[in-house]
Design a protein around this nucleic acid. Structure first.
Lengths: 188, 188
DNA sequence: CTATATATAGACCAATTGGTATATTTTTTT
DNA sequence: AAAAAAATATACCAATTGGTCTATATATAG
């Protein structure tokens, strides 16, 4: 029972990376199995529901990873404005450093599958809710009124996702940095 | 020379709609030809470079359409805050009304193709630049200093794109509406 | 050692992909 | 009306898609 989790995990990790980078439809099962080293027989043993199941679990893995990154980033300062700005700047730096190695966490899968797979759509929704609530949590801890904090969490998450998308398309991190710059105005 | 432009135009319009709704890779040329009524022979006659060329021209059509919508929306009020809020609320309403008929204008194609086709990436970049400059223009006309207006244009565009993405995934327009609500804070 | 899950290996499948070739029709020009 | 250009119509292609199948290892028991 040692190689078991190993192979399954490798499949999810590879799929997770490829789905983020290339999107759902552009990523073939052949590519996933080849790059992960696992054969197709194993894929359908570990993921009987095929590509959809693999994508759902990939989204979940990405969600956990990114959520942790957000929480860690936000803990770098007690001041929420500074903390959020630091986090966004970190993302921008990481984007510059490894733009061609990593895509936008959830967006591609969300856009491609929300209309064709309800379970996948729900997974992406959960991801965004988790991201939002990390920001909201930070604001509540800093004394923001709950409803206001929830609204701001949604808006901050939207801003970051949008800036990520545009930075990705433009090939430069400027939008992310400008969003960071406007955080103080937003949080008054 | 009457049927000529007609067939070409039908192909682009159909492709434009399908690419926005389903994304690049999920939209097959067979589906485009079938839904547009044009045969495959015509497709490669009008678009010798195939799917990529068709997608580029589709993005350009969408860009023109959306830009016009933004400009018209922003003209509904002289006050930039009110104008931008009105535009976003219009988008939110339209989203609620026809969410399953229309996807997010450029995002899906941008995410799916930016890393695999430089010309397509450039088309999507042009689209976003055009959207941004519409907001920037409005702010400059309202007396904002140029550099500040440019930065805000980028941020506003990012916010709207991100909110669109999340609204799409969530299946509700709340993120868009909350972004609209925060516009005054952002523009001071 | 045997029996039994667990897991791997990869050949195979129908369907679809983007793209090409060629023949035919329609339209325009002379 | 004849010639030329523009456009349409399909049949066809190799390659790849997601997915299934059966045989074979590789463990973990008893």
């Amino acid at each position: 029972m040692s190689g078991k989790e190993n192979s399954r995990e490798r499949l999810i990790k590879t799929a997770s990376r490829l789905f983020q980078l290339q999107g759902y439809h552009a990523t073939g099962l052949n590519q996933i199995t080849k790059e992960s080293g696992a054969p197709k027989g194993s894929l359908y043993y570990h993921f009987p529901d095929g590509k959809e199941q693999l994508a759902i679990e990939s989204v979940q893995l990405t969600t956990a990873f990114v959520s942790k990154q957000i929480e860690e980033g936000l803990n770098k300062s007690t001041d929420p404005i500074e903390a959020i700005q630091l986090f966004i700047k970190d993302m921008a730096e990481r984007f510059e450093r490894e733009s061609c190695t990593v895509g936008i966490p959830i967006a591609a899968v969300a856009l491609e599958t929300s209309l064709i797979s309800e379970p996948l759509r729900a997974s992406c929704q959960s991801a965004y809710q988790k991201f939002q609530s990390a920001f909201t949590e930070k604001l509540i801890q800093s004394g923001y009124e709950e409803k206001h904090a929830m609204e701001l969490g949604i808006v901050i998450n939207s801003m970051i996702e949008g800036a990520f998308l545009i930075s990705f398309t433009m090939g430069k991190s400027e939008p992310l940095l400008l969003v960071a710059k406007q955080i103080p105005s937003l949080l008054k």
